[in-house]
Structures are given as structure tokens and as C-alpha cells.
Design a protein around this nucleic acid. Structure first.
Lengths: 208, 208, 208, 208
DNA sequence: GTTTAAGCGAGACGGTACGTCCTGTCTTAAC
DNA sequence: GTTAAGACAGGACGTACCGTCTCGCTTAAAC
């Protein structure tokens, strides 16, 4: 008598898992998030809808599972200098958010995440936490190298790094993201290696 | 001498226009974008669905019309210094994106805009163009004051200003946005008044 | 100063009355009752919808007014014999129900009349009463001529005369209504000049 | 060896079929044809609208399916004589058209059938063909008994039998249909057992 | 080698919202 | 005060999608 849930019967077919996720990405690429339907994914995967819902509680979870893992940042390369570390990290973020599938998925997915508390938690604990780690690693290295004396708040750096990339892709819809990425890295380096952030003028401003 | 087709028949009732948009905002505030329905808006506005669809081709257009104009930035105040101008502009952006209605609307609306070419164009020509103007005005003033010698690209500043605010609100979901806004203003000042952006190291990086 | 309801302002344009009714008949002929809309009639008549509703309380009343009067039977000709009087009357009924407009209108109109108490009353008092008069006139003449000794119930004759024509046109959808009309007249003559209606066999049957 | 396409997937639930048709009849009885809505039927049946439209292409088809089969005539009883056979057949017709559900359904249904070519065909091939068979059977029996020498045209008898009943119920709106039915049977017996139908007078009339 | 319990493709199910259409009323400016 | 034009509230239509549920079958592990 085994202690755990005893799993009799036919085990799940891992090829089904894979084909659902692959089909999700294909349908996303073809129709975008807004026009993606579960039936279309099932048909594309050659799979019944029940097989999908046995694995993913909702359509949102399915898309989340199909895309978020492919958007996780790799470990940030140590390039030897803060500025190039930043540039490399920005390039990685751009690669995860700027590829064709992500371009038609990210806004819709973000909207779903925002309106669903469970997804919000998981999004924070996986995708966002991974990004935070990468940012922290780059900052720590810069401190160790002596490029930064006191490291700025991770969340601030995080927002100033991911936010502009997101805005460029989905709001500004600017051209040549590579040029943008290089300029952004340079500006961020200035921002964090420059003079003290809490200028008297701002303190003054706050009191208005 | 009437130039145009002169519109016989009963004219549109502007109170209906207003009550549709107001009801849309109310329903958004109560249920969020994802759970908003056209029937709910019609019922709330005391209006038939036909009156809505006579004015807005789709639900998306209706929400767009109801919210985008309320998110337009005011003219940026001249505070006397670049850093405080930036801080004021950031506060304005925060006010437009961080109010209770915007918090439950912006991600969904951005997703719809992204998946609809018409909305994209209108979004660019209204909301984004207005933001760009404000950014440009602040930069121009800084140049005139001598705080900046050669102004950075407007789009870059735009992305580095709006992007972090957006990321803070909808991705990082960080606390105390006022503190964040002040820190961001300081860092951006450093970023744009600091040393030259095109460092040799980055040129080198690009060739990898 | 007139004594009665004083009718200030512009009087109704009788050409509008006529063009509404004519347009109704045209639209009926083209699309049939089921697909007739008030807007289509208004457009066809070159008239506003208000002008229609000022004259007719509902769509049903409008169609009623446009068609029922054209379906009223003429006074039955005195042909000299019961059988030919019947045949002439049947021909008249066939002409009122079997013309192209009536063919696409009568079933729909009958359905509306059936589901509306007001229309039912008016239908009985105008169209049906007129038919009853015609039937009665033919029967009276036959009695005066000595072709019938005691006249059968008017309503029974009425049903046996109009019913078969209606059934032929809208249920059986039989061919050559002229031949049918002639045969029907002959059979009805037999029916009403034949032996006594209350046969012992039927009294017996009733008790089963 | 299965001959036909073999229907994978979940089969239709026959209880859903039944409950849709039953609910349709109930709603008809309560509100009449004109005020029947598909949503009301779905709600009453405890069924989604999709389940209805999966079975019936339009509201009209649904009502057709729900009612026409219940209006089919039973096999005509052999009562031993033509007159009583006719009376029994008339009673059956009266029972199918004169019950409470039929009274509020038949005119509306007939109107829909008339305006839809598909329904017309199906109506002819089912309901009307069944009636024709019954009429033919009664006539054949009368010929075999020697009560009729040459049988009259089936369609003519059909029209003269169903038409008056229909007219009595929906146009004349006469009282005591049982008395009417008995009188009608007697008159029809005279009509078809009486003298030759093609009188010289009628031939003469035709030439006017 | 069974047995057996779960997985599988297919597709029907209840429910909900969409966007369209029509009715009968109301509002405008023109006459 | 009527006219043509057309906006108005209300409500039904038929479609589409979601997440659940059967159906008859396959399939691997347990016996």
C-alpha cells in the first residue's frame, strides 16, 4: 500500500504535453493572443480539449505555460564591465520580449495576468523573480568590481531596464531595437554610476 | 452655403455619448476590463446597445474612447529645472496610469490596441503623440536653460520615462510609487546629464 | 370656428396615405410578409416612419389596411342558378386570395390576426362579415328560386366555400385553381341540394 | 463493415432532444407562437442555445419539429360506412388542429412554412402527405364497399375536408366544432355520393 | 495473461457575450 | 402640425467560445 496518490491506469503521454505547447505557440504566432481559441489549439495539436484541460486549468494557464518558460532570461554573462553586462542583459530581455511569438502574446498575457490573482502570483514567482535575480547578479558584480559603491535598489533598476524595452516594443513601437538597446545600456550606466540620486531640488519638489 | 452633407434627421444626443462613456468607466472601475460587457454598459447608461454600436464599432473602440482621452497628459509644468520638470512629468504619467480605473484598464486596453491595427494607429496619433510632445517640451526647455547641450533622442527618453512607470505598476507591482517616482526622476537626470552615451566598450560589445 | 375637434395646422397629405399602402403592397409582393419591415416600406414610399405610425398603430395594422380592403369580395353576381352563383363566388374568393400579393401575405396576416385580439375583431367585422353577406345573398337567392327549400347554416356554407380554396392555395398547393374552382362549385351544389344532412348513421356515430 | 461515417465523439443526448421539443410545446401553449423566443425555450428546457441550434437551423425549424409530428393523423378507422368514416376523419383533423397548443401555433407555423421553401417541402412530404393517405384510404374503402362508383380526386376531397375545419377554427371562429364536424361530414357525403359534378351549366359559365 | 484505471480524440453540453436587426417612440429642422 | 430623416430604448436572433462532460477506444502498469 503506497502512501501517495497511487497513479493506476495509463500515464499521461508526454508527446501530448509537448504538442499542446507547440501548437499554442504556433497558433499564437499565426493569430495573436486575442484570436487564439482552445479549439484551435486542440485541432492544431491533434488533441482533444479534455487533454488540454487535464493539464491546464484555463486558457490563460495554457498560454502562460507555453510562453513564459520560453521567455525566461538566461544567466547573465559576465562581460567584465557593468556597461557591457547591462547591454547583454538588455539584449536578453529584448530577445525574450521581441521575438515574433512574444510580440503578439505579451500584451494579452500581461492583461490576463493582471486580472487574475493566481496568475499574478505565479508570474511574480517565476518570470519576474528570475528577472530580478539577473538584475541583482549584474549589480552585485558591479559592486564587486568597484564600479558601483552602494548598489541602487534592485526593483528600481529592474523597472528602468525592463520597462523601457517593453515600452519601446509595445507602446512606442520604435524601429531598430538593437540601436535602442545600445543607447539604453549607455544611459542606464550613466544613471547608476552618476551623482547621488537624492538631490535637494527633488526633496524640495516633493513638498509642493 | 453649407459645404458638407448636411445631416438630416434627429441629431445624436450628446447626453447619450456622455452617459455611454461614463458608464464604461464606471463598469471598468467595478469589474475591470476583462469582465466588462457591452450589455452591462448599456444597462448602466440607460441606453440601448444600438446607440452604443452606432458610435463605436466594437467593444474595444468603446473602451478606447472612454479611457484614452482621460489618460492624456496635461501640459508639463515649467518648474525651473530639468530634474524637477522630469519629476513633475513622471508624476503626471503616474497619475494617468496609476489611478484606480487605469490600473484595471490599461493592461487590457493595451492588449486590445496591440491586436488591432486601427486602434494602434489611433493610439499612436493621440495618446502616444501627446506623451511625445510633453517629453519633447521638457527636453527643449532643458536645452534652452543650458542643462543639456545636445538633447537625447525623444523616443529614447520617452521609453525610459514611461516604461519604468508602466513596469512598476503592472509588472513589478512595487509599493509606494511616489518614492519610486522621485528616485526615477533623479536617476533619469543623471542618465541624460551624464557622460557621452556611446562608450567604446559598447561598440566593442556590438561586434560579438 | 368649427364645432368639432379643431384640426389646427397642416392637414395630412392624402398622397402619403396612398403611397404607404402602395409601398406596403409592393414590398409584400417582393419579399413576402415574413421579411417585410416598416423601414423598407417607409423607404419605398419615400416617407418617414412617423408618418406610417401616425396612421397605423402597428405593422400588422398597416398590412391589414393595405391588403384587406383589396381582398374584399364584390357583390355576388346573379347568374340565374345556384350552381353558377356558387361558381362565381368561388372565383371571386379565388381572385382575392390567389393573386400574387395575397399569396405571400395571407398566411402571415392570418397569423398576426390570430394572435391579436383587436385585429381579430376588426377582421371579423370587415373581411369576414363581408364574405358572410355574400354567401347569405347567394343562399337567399337560391331559396327564392326554389333551388333550396330550407337554407343550410350560413357559417357552414361559408366554411365549406372559403376553407377549401384556402387549403388548396396554402396547404395542398395544388395546380390549376380554375379547374379546382369548377369542381368545387359542382360538389358544393350537390352537398347543399342533396339529401337531408342529419343522417341516422351520424347520430349513431356521435354516441360512440 | 460500417457503411456510413461513424460518428466519433460524444453522441447527442436524446433527453436533450426531447426536452427541447417538450419545452417548445410548453412555451407555445403559454405564450403562443408570436411571443415564443428561443431563449425562453432554452431556459425552460434547461439547455444551452447551442444545443438547440445544433439540432434545428432556425427557430422555425424547431417549432416545426416540435409540433408537426404531434399533428399527424392516426390511421383512419374503418367504421363500416363512408359517412361515418368521413366523420371520424374529420374528428381526427379537428383533434389535431383544434387542441389548445395547435390553436395558438398553427396559423403562425403555416405562415412560416409558406415563407420558407425548405419547410414547405418538408411540410408537404410529412404532414400533408399523411393527410392525403388518410383521405385516400377512406375513399378506397368507399369504392370497395360500392358507395362510390368512380372516386373523386383525392386532392379535391382533401381540400374540402381539411379546408372547412381550418376555416371554422381560424377564420370563422365558430362555436361548437363537434356539431360543425357532424354537419360537415353529412354535407361532404352528399357532395361525393350525389349527381355528376360536371354540370352543363358550369361549362357554360366558364366561357363568360 | 488478464484485469483495471486512467488517458485519449471527438464532440455535445450549459452558459455567456457578441454584434446585428427590427419595432414603435421621439426629436430635429423645414415647410 | 405634418413632413423626411434618423436616433432612441428595448429585446430577440443566431454565432462563437469557454470549461465540463460523455462516448468508445487505447495503453501501460498491477495483479
Amino acid at each position: 500500500m503506497s502512501a501517495e496518490g497511487q497513479r493506476a491506469g495509463r500515464p499521461r503521454d508526454s508527446r501530448v504535453d509537448a504538442s499542446i505547447l507547440a501548437a499554442t505557440r504556433e497558433v499564437l504566432a499565426e493569430t495573436g493572443y486575442a484570436r487564439l481559441t482552445v479549439d484551435a489549439v486542440a485541432a492544431r495539436a491533434g488533441v482533444g480539449k479534455a487533454a488540454i484541460y487535464r493539464r491546464h486549468a484555463t486558457k490563460q494557464e495554457m498560454v502562460f505555460a507555453a510562453t513564459v518558460h520560453t521567455m525566461e532570461l538566461p544567466a547573465p554573462a559576465d562581460t567584465g564591465a557593468f556597461i557591457t553586462d547591462l547591454a547583454a542583459l538588455i539584449d536578453d530581455v529584448l530577445a525574450t520580449l521581441g521575438n515574433p511569438v512574444a510580440l503578439v502574446t505579451v500584451p494579452g498575457l500581461l492583461a490576463e495576468i493582471t486580472s487574475d490573482a493566481d496568475l499574478t502570483v505565479r508570474f511574480q514567482q517565476t518570470f519576474m523573480e528570475r528577472q530580478r535575480e539577473c538584475v541583482r547578479a549584474v549589480l552585485d558584480r558591479a559592486v564587486q568590481r568597484g564600479e558601483l559603491d552602494e548598489p541602487p535598489q534592485t526593483d528600481l533598476v529592474h523597472a528602468m531596464l525592463v520597462g523601457p524595452v517593453f515600452a519601446w516594443l509595445f507602446m512606442i513601437r520604435g524601429q531598430s531595437p538593437e540601436v535602442f538597446a545600445r543607447d539604453l545600456a549607455a544611459r542606464l550606466t550613466s544613471a547608476f554610476t552618476g551623482p547621488s540620486p537624492s538631490s535637494p531640488a527633488l526633496v524640495h519638489l516633493k513638498s509642493r
